[in-house]
Design a binder for these strands. Structure first.
Lengths: 243, 243
DNA sequence: CATTAACTGTGTCCTGCGGACACTGTGTAC
DNA sequence: GTACACAGTGTCCGCAGGACACAGTTAATG
């Protein structure tokens, strides 16, 4: 029923993200802003990962009791929602991305990569049922704009956006999760290389692939991005030439 | 120091997956096999998701005490590793996939999609630091084989495999996580559609896209897969024609 | 100016989690 | 028969998220 904090709205967790603050008139001043709480949580996650994030930890970070956090946030889910929307920062506006759609897509990928590298927990925090924040939606909006000149159908354009984010998530996550240069996917396996080496007879194709030293981690997603954009291009071409 | 259970090997969690059982000589019979425990856990996850998986729950399912499970498995991580390798089932052998590499890739994607649809928690359980099981590696091996005739470099071939799994994970996860037909990515947002509709002025590109009804969930990954394979093809062609 | 109501932060308590550890019971090898 | 290796149980601990009642603080209202 309150008009301000929003931590007591039962309709949907995370709506603080979309509501204007609306300062309260009576009562003591808050010791912190929602943003300060969010960034404290981001700091914790940056250091100890999402697994190391707890109400206690964040509360201690900002010098409050655990329960005081619930004045800012309805629960841990909402805290995560808030910290995600803080960590992604402002999405690029229409004036920022210039050049061909391909150049824009590459620049965009670099931007996402920057943010997700600064906050390695981010690509994994954003999965599952959750309310998106305005900045987060802004990134999707920006990605959608890029593919507009391509002439894809609406649902295909959306799929392209999904795939772009998915690709970055996949590659950045495997890159940040340890020192291993690539390691494949349904795993992220910590020692897939060793396992394959120990059972070379069972996995000949992988053994062959593993012989190659591989590229540096920093440029891991570039080849894949090129493939992806090529694929979009050929899909658009196929669409123009009457399927 | 034991020669059998493997739950006390300090070197790496999950090595039960790669060790031959080796029946013990003395002591009472085990009430269950490791496989029975694994499948019970799979059943729990199928019903209540990964979040609903706890030692208690699994123990109750098989009629044991929580602590008795630790005779089969070193900890929850190892339990997850075991249940993942059980749930993925046997990967397709070289004789199963036939036709062009493209047909093989499509068939392979269909197979992965089948398994991951049966166990919706699977695509998300497999991320992060974890020891892969033999079957899991087998799937990667199978995927690697598919791209062999394409003439890609070793690291590119590996990237292709990673992207294939990543694409399926992304699309299947967003498809299974609710009724929403697509919803974009850094989110999986539960009501992104509503949010965009409520702030149409802020997200014009997304509003335009949202006007389209979209495809049925069942065929969500097909367009993306086509793009991906097209992209690989053009990368291979670029490679042959001297970059 | 006194009162009242709204608000912030604290302390206590509960449930469920993963897991350590000491224990009882059981079966085989010596 | 006895000793030992093993299976399963019960108790305990720390930590998690969160409900709830409370004390302190501030502004609107009489």
């Amino acid at each position: 029923m309150s008009s301000t904090s929003g931590a007591d709205d039962p309709s949907a967790a995370g709506h603080i993200l979309w509501r204007v603050p609306g300062e309260p008139t009576r009562g003591p001043r808050r010791a912190l802003t929602l943003d300060e709480v969010a960034w404290a949580a981001v700091g914790v996650a940056d250091r100890d990962g999402l697994a190391g994030l707890s109400m206690q930890r964040v509360a201690a970070e900002v010098g409050l009791t655990k329960m005081a956090l619930y004045r800012y946030v309805a629960g841990k889910d909402e805290l995560e929602a808030v910290m995600i929307d803080a960590a992604v920062e402002e999405p690029p506006g229409p004036e920022t991305l210039t050049g061909t759609w391909r150049e824009q897509a590459e620049e965009f990928a670099r931007m996402v990569s920057d943010v997700w590298t600064r906050h390695p927990w981010l690509p994994w925090a954003a999965v599952g049922e959750r309310v998106m924040g305005p900045r987060e939606v802004g990134w999707v909006e920006a990605a959608t704009r890029i593919f507009e000149p391509l002439g894809l159908a609406a649902d295909e354009r959306m799929d392209a956006v999904t795939m772009l984010f998915g690709h970055l998530r996949t590659t950045l996550a495997t890159a940040s999760a340890g020192t291993r240069p690539w390691t494949a996917d349904p795993a992220g396996g910590s020692t897939m290389r060793d396992l394959v080496a120990a059972h070379a007879d069972r996995y000949p194709a992988l053994t062959a692939v593993m012989a190659d030293p591989g590229r540096p981690v920093s440029s891991r997603w570039e080849f894949g991005l090129g493939c992806l954009l090529d694929g979009f291009e050929s899909a658009a071409r196929r669409r123009e030439t009457g399927r």
